[in-house]
Amino acid sequence: MIDVRVQSSVFDVGEEQRYLLAGRCDIGAVVTFTGLVRDVNERPDVQALSLEHYPGMTEAALRDIAEQATSRWPLEGVRIVHRVGRLSPSDPIVMVMVASAHRRAAFDACDFLMDHLKTRAPFWKKEHTASGTYWVSARDSDVRAADRWEEA
């Protein structure tokens, strides 16, 4: 039901969806978010990105976020793949795939998962540009995005 992976190799969204749906006839909606490396971020000439994580905690944090989503929405499956190591612009970096009987739960849960992944999973990006290498700063907008899910 919940599958989380951290890997350096590329992933294939089609293949991930086939695994998620194998033998299932009760799923009516799959929503997938795929994050890609942009060549414009803090500086306009990003040549590469290296991603560091905290092995052990990363997997636990992703699983915890996925469990929160499944307790909040009626989900039939969650798959999260996050890449680490060195990536180039246009490379896929993260995939969050959510399956449910109906679309609304899948859309909302996918949004929730990404907001929390960005603020709670221990990944750090370093950008390599023609003018130097630096660690990417956290964004307040990401924190606000995650905060809006807080239940009153």
Partner: peptide, 10 residues
């Protein structure tokens, strides 16, 4: 125990 800066994945 690990200390780290704010996370920036995704």
């Amino acid at each position: 125990v690990a200390f780290f800066p704010p996370v920036t994945g995704g």
